[in-house]
Simulated assay, not measured.
Amino acid sequence: MAMLDIIDLKAHFSSPDGLVKAVNSVDLQIKDNERLGLIGETGCGKTVLGMSIIRLLPSSAGVEGQIIYNGQDLLHLTEEEMRQLRGREIAMILQNPTTSLNPVLKVGDQIAEVISLHKGLGKKEAKARAVQMLEAAMIPEAERRADQYPHELSGGMKERVMIAMGLASHPSFVIADEPTKGLDARTKAEIVNLIRDMTTGRSMLMITHDLAAAGEICDRIAVMYAGEILEEASAETILNDPQHPYTQGFIRSLPSRGLHPISGSSPSLIDPPSGCRFHPRCPYAMEVCKSEHPQMMRLENGHSSRCFLCG
């Protein structure tokens, strides 16, 4: 059974240059206890999709479609009803902890505030629970670190604090936005292991451009490009048998696969290419790719791809 069912989701913003179609008719499902990686280049709409789920987009944004969480459409809830879900049942681990953490509050107090809000614990109990979450996040000397300010912690420590804060109220569904961004290789490996351990038994959407990290953590991977899902399959299939040319190129661009970048650059979300949005950069583009927009084609074993070659 799907814990989260996203149906024909669209999200757009007005800009001086025109309407930015950040998310275009996305369909996704995340099952109970399943971790889905949402992969794509910067600016493809990944974070907007995540913020749409938790309804933290600015009021000027237009959102259409359905986001069904445990049988209820999140887009139809009142702001108060949504506030009751945020943090308690649906939590988001924000990217860039340096700007996400409050610089004038001790990190333990910031975690304790989340616990008090959603669990109704007193100040002392909440602080003790915050220290326990820091210990679970493998932060040494957790009690001492809880009384420190964000600027006193390393980048990796701050990321651990963000993970501890996001999971403090034991949410059923977690959205992790670029949790390994900007970390050195050793710290990234530690954070990958931590997220994998601490999200076991939970449903998660991991938003990232780091395909290798998603492959280690996630059960399935969906590949996003220019506001659309281009391919979706098990993590193993995406890494070892990708069918969409964009996914193939994305994998070839990894350091471990030879570091061969995809030619060209991502298209504008204001005026995307006609037909297949990837066709200007695709080495296999045909005439039909330039004029007709491909639909997601179901292959086998839950694998689907938005490409005429697969048909």
Rank of each mutant, 00 (worst) to 15 (best):
I68G: 05
Y69C: 04
Y69W: 07
Y69G: 04
Y69H: 02
N70I: 06
G71D: 01
D73I: 07
D73G: 09
D73C: 03
H76E: 13
H76N: 13
L77T: 01
L77E: 11
T78M: 03
T78F: 04
E81N: 13
M82N: 00
R83K: 08
Q84N: 15
L85T: 01
G87E: 04
G87R: 03
R88P: 04
E89V: 05
L94M: 14
P97H: 04
T98E: 04
T98V: 12
S100K: 06
S100A: 15
S100D: 03
N102V: 06
P103L: 07
V104L: 11
V107W: 04
D109A: 15
D109K: 13
Q110A: 09
I111H: 05
I111A: 06
I111N: 05
V114E: 01
S116W: 13
S116P: 02
S116Q: 11
L117Q: 10
K119N: 15
K119Y: 09
G120N: 14
G120I: 05
G122P: 14
K124W: 14
K124A: 11
E125L: 14
K127D: 10
A128Q: 15
A128S: 11
A128C: 04
R129D: 04
A130H: 09
V131C: 02
V131L: 04
V131G: 00
V131N: 05
Q132H: 10
Q132Y: 02
Q132N: 07
Q132F: 03
Q132E: 15
M133C: 11
E135K: 14
A136D: 08
A136W: 07
A136M: 10
A136N: 13
A136F: 07
A137C: 07
M138A: 14
M138G: 11
I139Y: 14
P140R: 13
E141H: 13
E141K: 10
A142H: 08
E143C: 04
R144Q: 15
R144M: 05
R144H: 09
R145G: 08
R145V: 12
D147L: 15
Q148K: 11
E152W: 07
E152K: 14
E152T: 04
E152C: 15
S154E: 04
G155S: 08
G155Q: 05
G156L: 08
G156T: 14
G156D: 08
G156E: 12
M157I: 13
E159D: 15
E159C: 14
I163N: 08
I163R: 02
A164D: 07
A164F: 07
A164H: 01
M165T: 06
M165G: 01
M165P: 05
A168L: 07
H170M: 06
P171F: 03
S172M: 12
V174R: 05
I175V: 09
A176I: 03
E178R: 03
E178Y: 13
T180G: 10
T180K: 07
K181T: 13
K181P: 09
K181W: 09
G182H: 00
L183Q: 10
D184R: 08
A185F: 09
A185K: 13
R186D: 11
R186N: 12
